[in-house]
C-alpha cells in the first residue's frame, strides 16, 4: 500500500456570521495516497474551497484530525503552519497570483526566499530547473504581462514545484483558461503526476476532472460520491487530436 500523504478524520468547520453558524464541513473522512491525482468537485457552497484551505494549512478546522505527510497539523501554530506550507506544499491558483512587473524566474524563486536553508546561489538554480520542467526556460526574464494566460499558469506551476512539495494544491487552476490552454495545463499536471507528484485539484468542471485518477464530490459539507476515474482522459492525446487553433491567425 502506498504512503498516505493526506489523511483527515471527522473534519468539521463552522463559520460564525453574526448570530448564524454556517457549517461548511460536517464530518469529512478522506485519505489521499502518494501518487494520486485527486479532483475535489462540487458546486459553489459545497464546502470544497473550505476543504482545500484546511488541507492547504491556510485554515484550521473546528474539529477533527488531519495528518499531512505524517505530521498532525491540528496542534500547530500559525508560524509552524507557514513553515509547513513553505516546505511541503505547492499552490496553484485560478488567477495565477504572480507578482506583477517581476520576471518569471523571480516569481518562481519566491517560495525559496522564505526558506532559510536555501542559499542565494542554489535558489536561482532550483528555480531554473523548475522553469525548465514546465517548458518556459526561454521565457525566464519575461514579466507576467509579456506572457499568455497559459504561460502565466505554467510559471505558477513552476513556482509550486520549486520547493519539491509532497502535494500540490490547485484551486480551479484552469478556470481562467480556454479549452485548449486548459488541456495544455492539464497535460502538464498529468506529466507531473506520472513522475510521482501527488496533486489535489479543485474544480467544478467534469470535463477537467476526467484527467485525474479519483474524483471526490462534495455537497453541503459532505462527501456524497467518491469514485476512481475510468477510463482516464489523456490531455496530451486530446490536444494532438484538436483542430489547430485559428483564432489568432
Amino acid at each position: 500500500m502506498a504512503k498516505k500523504i493526506l489523511e483527515v478524520k471527522g473534519l468539521r468547520k463552522e463559520f460564525h456570521v453574526g448570530d448564524i453558524t454556517v457549517r461548511a464541513l460536517r464530518g469529512i473522512d478522506l485519505t489521499i495516497e502518494q501518487g494520486e491525482f485527486v479532483a475535489i468537485m462540487g458546486t459553489s457552497g459545497s464546502g470544497k474551497s473550505t476543504m482545500l484551505n484546511i488541507l492547504g494549512c491556510l485554515d484550521k478546522p473546528t474539529a477533527g484530525e488531519y495528518w499531512l505527510d505524517g505530521i498532525a497539523v491540528a496542534g500547530l501554530s500559525k508560524n509552524e503552519l507557514a513553515s509547513l506550507r513553505n516546505k511541503k506544499l505547492g499552490f496553484v491558483f485560478q488567477s495565477y497570483n504572480l507578482l506583477p512587473r517581476t520576471s518569471a524566474i523571480e516569481n518562481v524563486e519566491l517560495p525559496l526566499f522564505y526558506n532559510p536553508e536555501i542559499k542565494a546561489k542554489e535558489r536561482r538554480e532550483i528555480a531554473m530547473q523548475a522553469l525548465e520542467s514546465v517548458g518556459l526556460a526561454d521565457r525566464m526574464h519575461h514579466t507576467p504581462n509579456q506572457l499568455s494566460g497559459g504561460q502565466q499558469q505554467r510559471v505558477a506551476i513552476a513556482r509550486s514545484l520549486v520547493n519539491d512539495p509532497v502535494v500540490i494544491f490547485a484551486d480551479e487552476a484552469t478556470g481562467n483558461l480556454d479549452t485548449r490552454t486548459s488541456y495544455e495545463v492539464m497535460s502538464l499536471f498529468q506529466e507531473l503526476n506520472a513522475k510521482g507528484k501527488t496533486i489535489v485539484f479543485v474544480t467544478h468542471e467534469p470535463d477537467i476532472a476526467r484527467f485525474t485518477t479519483r474524483n471526490v464530490v462534495f455537497r453541503d459539507g459532505h462527501i456524497i460520491k467518491e469514485q476512481m476515474v475510468d477510463p482516464r482522459g489523456n490531455a496530451r492525446e486530446l490536444l494532438n487530436n484538436m483542430p489547430i487553433n485559428t483564432d489568432y491567425e
Partner: peptide, 14 residues
Amino acid sequence: REIGLRMAIGAQSF
C-alpha cells in the same frame, strides 16, 4: 493578493 500569496507559500507574519 501579493501578501496573501506570500503567506500561502510560507511567509510568516513577521
